[in-house]
Simulated assay, not measured.
Amino acid sequence: MKLHTTTDAVLVLEDGTFFRGKSLGKIGTTGGEICFNTGMTGYQEIFTDPSYYGQVVITTVAHVGNYGVQPEEVESNNIQIKGLICKEFSHHFSRKTAEGSLQEYFEKAGVVGICEIDTRELVRYIRDKGVMNCIISSETADVEALKEQLKQIPSMDGLELSSKVSTTTEYDLPATEKRFKVAVLDLGVKRNILNNLTSRGCECRVFPYGTTFDEMEAWGPDGYFISNGPGDPAVTTQAEKTVEQILNVERPMFGICMGHQILAQANGIPTYKMHNGHRGLNHPVKNLVTGRSEITSQNHGFAVDPEAVKNNPNVEVTHINLNDNTIEGIRIKNKPAFSVQYHPESSPGPHDSEYLFDLFVELMEKDKKNS
């Protein structure tokens, strides 16, 4: 196995705080919005999740890279994170089925990172101070120079990124046993979301960001899915207009994460940037319809305004976060449309919430019978 050498690296936060450690991945400089994920496993799925585009991820688990990488565990065609911060980075892996090391994976993709820093101290700091931009460099240790470079990194607030990660051309995914046709508006969709649809008999046609309602409707879908994705939902206005038109024709619709926020905005409910966001595999959510709680996988830095939801007579809250009472799910009264803020495909994560895909299928079955 190839031996890897490390060099000194430095992490600088937007407020001037800095940490020194060792390099991982490619030698270079990178920056973006810093955030932390509390998951204990599934790092390859996290790194390839399009919702992380533009962000530098801190992993709170102590060891990263110890089980290598393999093609089956990606959520998109590329690594999406801008950089990685971790405590212990393993250049060697022990899983027999792995096809390579995380170091080689990062080098090939050009990902810059830093390890051997106190991630517990860093996460506690970010949790207290709130989300901010950061820069990592293994090229220079000059903190003042990096502070100047950091000023050039745009804020996530007001940044439209879905168009950067969406497919550029529409494509089809066959169902295991074709029962329905689902039009997927790709704002940064994860592969395992699509797998959950196709395994339930949904033939999917995935449409690029910016596709109009008329273009999707021409395919004759039985339902619409609005995907997850990165960036600020408030400026993802093209998708919002499309969702408004889907609501007008009262076709079954299901939204996840960004899709949830867009559905809310299409009903006049604004979104806001959270202090830290929710990212991990262990977030407790209560289903207000059934009274049952579920452990969920989450990745979002924006949320829908709870007061606006409460004051909207056409929207019902279906799920809440048990940590902070943020809105985790809504459904539109008298219309076959619902959404959740978290990730029921849970890859990685628990499978408590897969029933939501079944609810979407039931909506389409009901709509077919009534049409």
Rank of each mutant, 00 (worst) to 15 (best):
K273Y: 11
E73K: 12
N133I: 09
E203D: 12
V315Q: 06
I330E: 09
L150W: 00
P71L: 05
L356Q: 06
P71D: 12
E203C: 00
T168C: 06
V165Q: 04
N334T: 09
D128Q: 07
N66F: 11
V249K: 10
V10H: 04
P154R: 14
H278A: 12
H260E: 01
W219C: 02
E307C: 12
N299I: 07
T236K: 11
T271P: 00
V249N: 04
G229S: 15
Q265P: 02
C257Q: 01
E45T: 08
N314G: 08
E99K: 09
L288V: 09
L288Y: 03
K178W: 02
C115G: 09
Q152L: 04
M216W: 02
T41H: 14
T59W: 11
I58P: 13
G223L: 03
N133Y: 02
L161N: 10
Q238C: 01
G201E: 09
K286D: 11
Y43G: 11
I81H: 00
F207G: 12
N321D: 11
V304G: 15
D222S: 12
E121F: 03
M1D: 10
E217G: 00
G16N: 01
A175Q: 10
I79N: 05
T140G: 08
K82P: 01
K310V: 04
K335L: 12
G291I: 10
T296S: 06
F47A: 09
T211S: 13
K369I: 09
E72Q: 14
T271V: 02
I27V: 15
T326P: 05
L187W: 01
Y355T: 06
L150H: 03
E160P: 13
V10W: 00
F19I: 03
A9I: 07
D222Y: 05
A62W: 07
I117V: 12
T38R: 06
G113M: 09
D172K: 04
V285C: 10
K82V: 00
N228P: 05
N78R: 14
V131F: 07
P233Y: 10
R251N: 03
D222G: 12
V361Q: 07
R331Y: 11
G21Y: 00
H319G: 07
R205Y: 08
F47Y: 09
F89G: 13
C115F: 11
T7A: 05
M216L: 07
L122R: 00
N299K: 01
G301S: 12
T7N: 10
V112Y: 02
D172S: 07
H4F: 15
L281M: 11
D157H: 15
T296R: 04
R20A: 15
G113A: 05
A264I: 00
K178A: 10
S297M: 13
P336R: 03
L150M: 00
V309M: 03
G280N: 02
T48G: 06
C115A: 15
D118R: 05
R251C: 08
P221N: 08
M364S: 07
G280S: 02
G223Q: 02
A141E: 14
S353V: 14
Y53G: 03
V304K: 15
E240T: 15
E345Y: 03
P233N: 13
V182P: 04
V182D: 01
G16S: 06
N78E: 13
S227Q: 08
G220P: 01
D15G: 04
Q44T: 15
E316Q: 10
T97H: 05
D222T: 15
G110Q: 09
E148H: 02
E170I: 13
K333I: 13
T168E: 15
Q152P: 00
